[in-house]
Write a protein that binds this DNA or RNA. Structure first.
Lengths: 227, 227
DNA sequence: CATTGGTATTTTGCATGCCAAATACAGATG
DNA sequence: CATCTGTATTTGGCATGCAAAATACCAATG
């Protein structure tokens, strides 16, 4: 009986988490900086009507999203999609730098060789001229690389903490990777990071990841004045 | 008219946030590791009755608390106060180490001299024998010190991210500070950290804060086997 | 006596209704 | 014509009701 190895069926897709996912995805896919400010407003009743549910799960989802900083609540006025100022974007990058650099340290110390190998695979196929041609795909790989370092730390608390910030990093990457020759610098940095982790040099891996992120912060600070 | 300097009255203490605060405080003040496991259960109706409100704000508060990791939700079963395993406590300390060390770097770079001065004031009066006598107060000062470093970073995103972890740190501190001669080591570490920040040595401040936290993690790992 | 099957009870998840706060707007007033 | 005031409308906050899921309990059966 117990030999069957059945996985528990999870009917845990409650309406409120589906609403949460739907709103989160909608926000992620929208370029927040090119839409009418009036569209930033999230009307409970309208959301409920469009998703075909009542207002209760909508409100629960909005409470969660507010906690992640994706929406802001104005008491008695409702919810707005949160646009980040340039100063806030820099704060986000620095916070991410803190978490990812610690993750790199932990990954170098504890992750298995097999797990580390997955880091190289992310960039497999992105060599030389292909890089510039498929910038969009590279930008995705870029994000996956940094998220993977967090995962390799094996620290679930760290991962969950970083998860709430990753979505904001996504928006930043898409807006900065295309500029000048940042991707050349980027791919060199990544190789050095991988090498440091693979040789189990925790201090160096931590330092490289932090400096890589700090450079991004400095870049956003110097450019991107249209935020 | 505008000369009166009136502060906007904030009726923003909605019931749901007051419920949130009340439950959070109740959890914080309880020694989770010495109570009957049956008392870990949070009954929506009971909470609503005891706080004199309906279940709606209770649920909103619980959703927030779940996001912070203070309670866990079991679908269709309700909410439980989350007890942390020893492994989870170590994860929490390492995550805190990541955030606080970055905060120390930023504080050394950007905080004003006046602001930095507040770091010394926290430990004013804790000298020599008074230390051992009033361990409880020292433990509080200890926490305020580390929280203050986060604040001095001037990074609001970092502060909010760390806030959700601080409450777990509180539980850890209370359980470890009393052991052997940790507080002697602790107060020396703190002095070095303050000095590094004051002399604007960002790299060293970051390193000292991180190592201080890593030492705590190692201590919990080696001792505290009764978790 | 152990185990299974069914029923009652408890409890969460969602829907809906009401109320109060905030805004928008129009009319009045100087 | 500008401004102020009162009213209507919109909208979020909370209470409550209902249904489904999960458990607890009990009886029936081998």
């Amino acid at each position: 009986m117990a030999a069957l190895g059945l996985a528990a069926i999870r009917a845990d897709t409650s309406i409120s988490v589906r609403v949460y996912d739907a709103i989160k995805q909608a926000i992620t896919e929208t370029n927040l900086y090119e839409i009418d400010p009036a569209d930033l407003r999230l009307d409970e009743r309208e959301l409920a009507a469009r998703l075909g549910v009542s207002r209760t799960p909508i409100r629960e989802a909005l409470v969660r999203l507010e906690h992640e900083g994706l929406v802001t609540s104005i008491p008695r006025r409702g919810y707005l999609i949160a646009r980040k100022s340039k100063a806030e974007l820099i704060e986000i990058i620095l916070t991410w730098a803190a978490l990812e650099s610690m993750a790199a340290r932990l990954a170098a110390q504890h992750a298995s060789d097999d797990a580390l190998h997955s880091l190289r695979e992310i960039f497999a196929g992105f060599e030389g001229e292909r890089l510039a041609a498929e910038l969009d795909e590279y930008s995705d790989a870029n994000l996956r690389f940094h998220a993977r370092i967090i995962e390799l730390s094996g620290n679930e608390t760290l991962r969950r903490t970083a998860e709430g910030i990753l979505i904001h990093m996504r928006a930043i990457r898409h807006r900065t990777i295309g500029e000048n020759q940042r991707f050349e610098r980027s791919i060199v940095d990544h190789r050095h990071i991988i090498e440091a982790i693979e040789r189990r040099d925790a201090e160096e891996a931590e330092r490289l990841v932090r400096d890589h992120a700090l450079a991004l912060a400095a870049h956003v600070d110097a450019n991107d004045n249209d935020l």
